[in-house]
Design a protein around this nucleic acid. Structure first.
Lengths: 232, 232
DNA sequence: ATAATTAAGTGTAATTATAACACTTATTAA
DNA sequence: TTAATAAGTGTTATAATTACACTTAATTAT
């Protein structure tokens, strides 16, 4: 490479934050992990989890780091949502925030972390006022989640590895805020051929018990290659 | 507000660029507006249009400003794509880039601007190597455009205000790289009831001429309110 | 004037996907 | 043994999508 470098020193510099909209599914409801902010401004107010981008860190590394520091979880489904760049969004200085949304299997999130970070699961139906533009971020993330779960099999990221059909249906019902017919739902999801039925039953939800299934990612990917189009 | 301010001075600072993937539709093909970069590094190489975020400017203002400076066009369809934040993406310094994609009616883009900015329309099929991660941005924008045009009526942004059904079909064929049946296409698009047929014919494409139509945004919005779901 | 050319425009039948709907079964607790 | 409860199952009606071929309006060439 024989290119002259430019150092861009004439251009402005900005702080960059990463904020995470962390979704979970528990007790038949879609939930969000939030906490009370630990520094000024807005100390003590409800906030998404976030942090600042470091000098020697890529943006996606930062998003993963922040989620890991908070939950101890890695290899979590995460997708960039949008970058928020209004001038006045943070009264304490010019900070742009890259919002990511993450789907975590709520059962894997331990109480220990919850205490350590003061994290709380709140139902999306009774979401409190969050600081700055965080409520906008949540709204936008929810819209995105609805679009995505309708066309990609990411709902499974919110469930344990082994789950029942009624659990899966209840998840979609929570995401779309609508009731689904269980016969049609079962027919549709099983017809795709991406679920593997296990021998075992989950007896926790009913007397009869419901068979456990597992999502087979390989099968799904083979279907996609053939041009298959996942939709709920 | 009785909140103490924090100035975040302990956190790192970054340059922020905005890069625009500008799509147009001409001669039955989807095209991209690019130019030869005017400064180091990579001076003279093919690049998307971009610029740096200014101190007193919101992110979306910056995106609009850059597009306006280049094309003289305002109120253009534009959507944020993704923020690119790899450490080494720009060899001349740490710069994060927020990519936007824009849809412009190619006929409104005048030759004058083209000369002034050295802008060139290139077919997506013969896209040259672009600098840094710009080819990734284009790939990602194209995926997004395909998803969006399938579920929202944004294709019209690429056409003149008055267009024919065969033109519209040809646009979708270019976007999806597939052939569509003209009877089924016409049936589908007209059945939505969002196109208004005009008296006039466009005689440029054939001897018989094709009737002109206009997209009626109001009607579309009324449909959406009723829960209608636009799909091609 | 007439014929040839060309893309626009049109309808129907077959197939597939979606939506609506009610009873039986496995298990546990009383 | 019975009562209770959620899981599990099939069919029919309706709507959406796909496949498919000829006619028409206007222009150009003869």
């Amino acid at each position: 490479m024989n290119k002259k470098k430019s150092n861009y020193s004439e251009y402005a510099l900005f702080h960059l934050a990463v904020d995470s909209i962390i979704f979970g599914f528990d007790e038949g409801e879609l939930k969000l992990l939030i906490h009370k902010r630990k520094f000024e401004p807005f100390m003590g107010d409800w906030s998404l989890f976030g942090g600042f981008l470091k000098e020697e860190e890529s943006l996606s590394d930062a998003a993963n780091r922040i989620l890991f520091e908070l939950t101890g979880l890695q290899k979590i489904y995460m997708e960039e949502l949008q970058t928020y760049g209004d001038i006045e969004r943070d009264p304490a200085g010019r900070v742009l925030s890259v919002a990511y949304y993450a789907l975590i299997p709520a059962h894997r999130y331990s109480e220990d972390y919850s205490k350590q970070y003061g994290a709380t699961w709140v139902s999306l139906k009774e979401l409190p006022d969050l600081i700055m533009d965080h409520n906008d971020m949540v709204k936008s993330a929810l819209r995105r989640l609805r679009r995505r779960t309708a066309s990609q099999p990411i709902g499974f990221e919110l469930l344990p590895r082994e789950f029942t059909i009624p659990q899966l249906q209840s998840l979609y019902e929570a995401i779309y805020q609508t009731e689904l017919d269980k016969r049609n739902f079962r027919k549709k999801i099983l017809s795709m051929g991406v679920l593997v039925k296990l021998e075992e039953k989950d007896m926790s939800g009913s007397r009869k018990g419901a068979f456990l299934y597992r999502f087979d990612k390989r099968k799904y990917e083979r279907l996609i290659e053939k041009g298959y189009n996942f939709t709920i």
